[in-house]
Each structure stands twice: as structure tokens, then as C-alpha cells.
Computed example of a mutant assay.
Amino acid sequence: MSKYFEIECSKNGLRVGKLVLDDLQLTTPLLVHSGRVNHYLLPKQVWETNTRALYYDPVIFAEKLGEKQLRDLPNLRQLFAWKGALFTTSGADEIAKLAKPRGYKANGVNFRLPKEGQLISLSPQDSLQLQEQLGADISEQLYRAVDYYSPIDDLTAGVALTNQWTASDSNSLFPVTGGGLKALHRKSIASLGGSRLFGYRITQTEQIDTVAEVKRNLLTVIKMLPSESLRVTKVKASLEQVIAALLVGVDVIYSDVAVHEAVTGNALVANGKRLNFDHARFANDWGVIDPNCGCSVCTSNYSRAFLHYLAKTDSPQYLNLILEHNLFWLNQFIIKFRSQIN
């Protein structure tokens, strides 16, 4: 695969870049949505929301399918006929829930999938091959996942093992670990011996509780990274945390915010407000979700009253329509954010 990243302009610590993956060109900052969207919408519908990139966790995907072995997973691009970019995680966070402490070894990790799966021994190289099997355009190296708020001894041990696992593959994302401790971040990055990679994944961000801490930690790590490399992180399913990552100069942000808001019944509108049409006040509201939105839900003139009806009758169409709107709205939000940097 031919891929490269370059910064096209920058302003006050923020930047707009070009991420080229074979014939597909993406503009950063980029919000990469969870592959969960394919559970509710057809891939064609997802594409029509201007979504151009999805991310998957291979271990969670295997659990959803009830697989007993990771090697049985299909190529996601073929499965969903997806023509956009595909980002994958190493599965490290989910593995941490499945593996026993003694399962972590110098050469990889041993764990079992649910459904009485056989023991899986996953090496750092196996992890990269698995992500390639799934059809990933951007993959990440395996790391020892430790909770952000763990004691310093646990965080230190996590960094030490992750450093042992460092792969020679310079095209995959290098995982920067260490909780919120600057010294451990520096130790994590130092394991590369001065090598500059294609990109870095700042881990553990999705475990942080407050927006202020998200900003502080991301900014601390970013200052240690080569300016020309791709910066990637994953945040909670929260628009506020997405914005926090944007404001410190992250290039690629993984988040399940679109699905999360839809599942809770919320449609995103101007200024990040949420509308839940289950409320009685929408029963006779004939306006669309957002008159300034160009999504297919709003341009089809589906009224708030109609959405109220779907919500009150527990129609599955309610979640689908709200998700379609949220995806489009979030993608437009990112486009507007980029325009302020140019």
C-alpha cells in the first residue's frame, strides 16, 4: 500500500493535512467513526453522510461474531463493500479485559475469547498481520493496555512491556503509553531510538474523565512527537472530548459519538445541543431536525413530529434516521473546523 501524510497549513498549533491511502485522499483533522454504524445503516447510507473512514477493534468484532479464533475473521472491506478508509486498533484494550496478568509475556499476550474460545497467543507481529487480514489502511502496534488512573508501578510496567513489543514496521501507528505521566510518555517514545514513524497513537485518552485533563495530557504528548508525523487518538463517545482533541492539534480522532448519541435518542444540532424527540413538545413540531443541515433526513423534510411518532412507537427507524443525521452533522462540523485553520 502506498500511503503518506503531509501538513498543508498550520495556525496557532492547529493544522490541516493530507492523508493519502492509495487512491483515497483524506483531509485532516479527521473524525473516524466506529464501525458500529454498519449495524444500523447500510454502507451506502454511511458513505452518503460524507463519512470516509471507519475504525474497528478486531477483538470486539470477533466477540460480536461469536468467533473462537481471530484467524477466522473476514476482510472487513469485502464484507461491507466499503470503499472508504479502514482504521484498526490492535485490540489491546479489549484484550486487557480477557487476559490474566500472567498472560502477558515478552513475546506477546495469551488470552481467550468468550464462547469457550481456544487459547490465543498474539505476538506483536501477529497483531499487525491480523489487522492486515481485516483490510486495514492504518493499523497500530500491539501495546500493554493499562488504565489511565492505575498506580505508577502498573503504568511503568505497561510502558516497559510495550517497549519490548515495539515492531520494526514503520508504517503502523506507534502506541504512546504512560497514563498522564510525562516521564513515562518520554520513556515510551524513547524506545524508538530516535526513529521517526509514519504516525503515533496516543493511547488511554478514552479513559480520561474530564475535558481539561484530555487537553492537558494530549498537549503534553504532542509536544514530544515529531511535528511531521500523524497524530492519532481515541476519545470517549463525547462531542466535548472530540472538540478537546481538535483544539490541541490531533490529526485523526476515533470516536463512537455518532452512534452513542443516536442510541440515547439524541440528534446533534447547532452549538452541540442535543434534541431528543421522545419529548411531548415535539408532537406538533413540523420543522426538520436542523433547517441548516444538508443531510438526507433534513432535506427529505422528515418533521420533528414524525420523529416524535417514531420515538414513541419504539420504531427502529428512529435510531437509523437520527444516526444518519448525526454522522452528516459531525462530518460537517469537522469541515467547518478545518476552514477556520486555512
Rank of each mutant, 00 (worst) to 15 (best):
N271P: 01
V211Q: 14
S170T: 14
L275E: 13
A237F: 08
P124R: 05
L113Y: 02
S339Q: 15
S121A: 12
G194Q: 08
H308V: 02
L247T: 15
Q340C: 05
D290Y: 01
Y149N: 13
T220D: 14
T210C: 08
K223I: 00
I334N: 10
R102A: 06
D209K: 13
K3L: 13
Q317K: 14
L173P: 07
L31N: 11
Q129A: 13
T49A: 15
D314M: 01
K187Q: 15
V257G: 07
K182E: 07
S123Y: 03
L142R: 05
R274G: 06
L65E: 13
N110F: 06
R112M: 05
R338C: 06
V59C: 06
S303M: 05
V252P: 09
L30V: 07
K312S: 13
L321A: 07
G265M: 00
N331T: 14
S303D: 06
L197A: 10
R144G: 00
I202W: 10
N266L: 10
P29T: 09
G66W: 08
Y318P: 02
Y200V: 10
L246R: 12
L21E: 06
A167P: 01
C295M: 04
F111H: 00
N38M: 12
D285G: 03
E213A: 09
E324W: 00
S90R: 09
Y55N: 02
N75S: 14
V235A: 10
K234A: 15
T49H: 05
